[in-house]
């Protein structure tokens, strides 16, 4: 028996919207830790890791140890679009061996209750071990600003060079029509803490990434006012959006490497 009641149902809607362009189908894992997912895009260039901790749910019951539920994200998205933004979402399943999952949507006033049953799928997914890393630079900035930069640069070029130095974090691209550079300096003198740009640098780092993926990651912007970008010269970048009181969604993107 699995029963997860999420009062802020819109979080789940936003999470799936941020994943569905990169991930076709995936196993959601339910354990005592929480509701989680690890999946790669079909080219294995990006890896997505989601955690919604069990204590963030109003009710969290998962009796079967680790219980993977294979879902096609496009179908899940269709169903979650039927939930109102203020609805409470309850996910129910009978346990291993059962091939359906039920989503119940309750309006805040409880005057409307809907349930949608979705077929589960068997998915062969390989879990990757993500090593604990020492990053050369960790930058926290407003998520809307990061989204804006990725969108702006993708009208000029296909790749972005992200460099962190004492000066700040620099995003550069070049294309047929010309070049673009955007520098964000550390800025902690802001009225609201979420507007700050904070740069922790151990050593300068510069890496090249495909902008198409970065733009996809920014679909998670509605989940958090801030984004954290962690860079090391020999590792995938980690773009993390914290999910209030519940966990995170992390996007790992493999760099482009000079031949």
């Amino acid at each position: 028996m699995l029963e997860l009641r999420l009062v802020q149902g819109s979080l789940l809607k936003k999470v799936i919207e941020s994943l569905k362009d990169l991930v076709n189908d995936a196993n959601f894992d339910c354990s005592s830790t929480g509701f989680s997912l690890q999946a790669m895009d079909s080219s294995h260039v990006a890896l997505m890791s989601l955690l919604l901790r069990s204590d963030g749910f109003e009710h969290y019951r998962c009796d079967h140890g680790n219980f993977p539920m294979g879902m096609k994200l496009e179908n899940l998205s269709k169903i979650l679009k039927c939930a109102g933004n203020d609805d409470i979402i309850t996910i129910k399943a009978d346990g291993p061996g059962n091939d359906t999952v039920t989503f119940m949507f309750e309006s805040p006033s409880q005057e409307k209750i809907a349930d949608y049953e979705m077929k589960l799928m068997d998915i062969d997914s390989e879990h990757l071990g993500i090593p604990e890393a020492e990053f050369h630079a960790i930058v926290r900035m407003p998520s809307s600003e990061f989204a804006r930069i990725c969108k702006d640069l993708s009208s000029i070029g296909d790749t972005v060079v992200i460099s962190v130095t004492k000066e700040g974090i620099k995003f550069s691209t070049k294309g047929d029509i010309g070049t673009a550079n955007v520098v964000c300096r550390q800025n902690t003198t802001v009225d609201k803490p979420e507007d700050a740009t904070i740069i922790e640098m151990q050593q300068p780092v510069s890496l090249t990434f495909a902008l198409r993926y970065m733009n996809s990651f920014t679909k998670a912007t509605p989940l958090s006012n801030t984004v954290t970008i962690s860079l090391s010269s020999d590792l995938p970048v980690v773009v993390e959006y914290k999910i209030a009181e519940m966990g995170y969604i992390r996007f790992y993107l493999a760099p482009k490497i000079e031949e």
């Binding site: 790669m40 990006a46 390989e126 879990h127 993500i130 995938p236 493999a254 490497i257």
Partner: peptide, 14 residues
């Protein structure tokens, strides 16, 4: 030119 690497180059299967 630069070549796109993959996640599996960096992280191994469990």
């Amino acid at each position: 030119g630069s070549k796109q690497s993959t996640i599996t180059k960096f992280f191994s299967k469990l």
